[in-house]
Measured scan of single mutants.
Amino acid sequence: EDYYQILGVPRNASQKEIKKAYYQLAKKYHPDTNKDDPKAKEKFSQLAEAYEVLSDEVKRKQYDA
């Protein structure tokens, strides 16, 4: 799945936009606030993985290549 789609940001998003999108979605899908939703944990880990790659310039360049 596309990391940009997961975070809901365009491919040319700035680091600030990526961070903002991640924090909004992380708050929304955090397992502690969605105890009754088994998919929230999965969504949250996808968000974390996408953010880890896109927030790191080197990893992001490799991902975009």
Results as ranks from 00 to 15, higher is better:
residue 38 P to M: 11
residue 63 Y to Q: 02
residue 52 E to I: 11
residue 44 F to P: 02
residue 32 D to F: 03
residue 14 S to L: 07
residue 27 K to V: 15
residue 20 K to Q: 15
residue 11 R to A: 06
residue 55 S to C: 05
residue 24 Q to P: 06
residue 40 A to Y: 09
residue 17 E to L: 08
residue 65 A to L: 10
residue 64 D to C: 02
residue 30 H to C: 07
residue 3 Y to V: 02
residue 24 Q to S: 11
residue 59 K to P: 01
residue 14 S to W: 03
residue 2 D to P: 03
residue 13 A to R: 00
residue 17 E to T: 12
residue 52 E to G: 11
residue 47 L to G: 03
residue 29 Y to C: 06
residue 65 A to P: 05
residue 41 K to Y: 14
residue 53 V to Q: 03
residue 33 T to I: 12
residue 21 A to M: 08
residue 21 A to D: 00
residue 21 A to E: 03
residue 13 A to Q: 01
residue 55 S to M: 06
residue 34 N to A: 10
residue 20 K to I: 15
residue 25 L to W: 05
residue 12 N to A: 08
residue 39 K to F: 12
residue 29 Y to L: 13
residue 4 Y to N: 00
residue 52 E to F: 07
residue 55 S to E: 04
residue 19 K to M: 15
residue 2 D to E: 04
residue 33 T to H: 12
residue 12 N to V: 05
residue 49 E to S: 09
residue 27 K to R: 09
residue 63 Y to E: 03
residue 8 G to T: 03
residue 9 V to T: 03
residue 26 A to H: 15
residue 29 Y to Q: 05
residue 1 E to A: 11
residue 23 Y to L: 15
residue 27 K to T: 15
residue 19 K to P: 01
residue 35 K to T: 12
residue 51 Y to C: 03
residue 31 P to M: 07
residue 45 S to W: 15
residue 6 I to W: 07
residue 18 I to R: 00
residue 28 K to G: 07
residue 25 L to R: 06
residue 55 S to W: 04
residue 64 D to F: 01
residue 47 L to S: 03
residue 37 D to T: 05
residue 43 K to Y: 11
residue 55 S to K: 09
residue 63 Y to G: 02
residue 8 G to R: 07
residue 5 Q to T: 13
residue 46 Q to T: 12
residue 53 V to P: 00
residue 48 A to L: 14
residue 20 K to L: 15
residue 54 L to G: 00
residue 36 D to G: 13
residue 1 E to L: 15
residue 56 D to K: 02
residue 59 K to N: 04
residue 15 Q to T: 12
residue 19 K to D: 15
residue 23 Y to T: 15
residue 6 I to V: 11
residue 16 K to D: 15
residue 45 S to I: 13
residue 60 R to T: 01
residue 62 Q to T: 05
residue 7 L to S: 00
residue 45 S to N: 11
residue 46 Q to R: 14
residue 13 A to M: 02
residue 58 V to E: 14
residue 24 Q to L: 14
residue 16 K to S: 15
residue 31 P to V: 07
residue 10 P to C: 14
residue 4 Y to E: 01
residue 8 G to V: 03
residue 29 Y to S: 05
residue 11 R to W: 07
residue 18 I to C: 02
residue 6 I to P: 00
residue 36 D to E: 13
residue 48 A to D: 06
residue 23 Y to N: 15
residue 34 N to R: 07
residue 5 Q to I: 09
residue 41 K to M: 15
residue 24 Q to R: 12
residue 43 K to A: 09
residue 8 G to Q: 10
residue 60 R to E: 01
residue 15 Q to D: 10
residue 33 T to F: 14
residue 46 Q to E: 09
residue 5 Q to H: 14
residue 15 Q to Y: 12
residue 62 Q to V: 06
residue 60 R to G: 01
residue 18 I to A: 01
residue 41 K to T: 09
residue 57 E to P: 15
residue 8 G to F: 04
residue 55 S to G: 15
residue 3 Y to N: 02
residue 38 P to V: 12
residue 10 P to Y: 05
residue 49 E to C: 07
residue 39 K to Y: 13
residue 6 I to D: 02
residue 38 P to I: 10
residue 61 K to N: 06
residue 22 Y to R: 01
residue 39 K to C: 10
residue 55 S to I: 06
residue 27 K to D: 15
residue 42 E to P: 04
residue 29 Y to G: 04
residue 44 F to L: 10
residue 63 Y to P: 02
residue 33 T to M: 13
residue 58 V to I: 13
residue 41 K to G: 09
residue 41 K to R: 15
residue 49 E to I: 13
residue 51 Y to A: 03
residue 36 D to P: 07
residue 59 K to H: 04
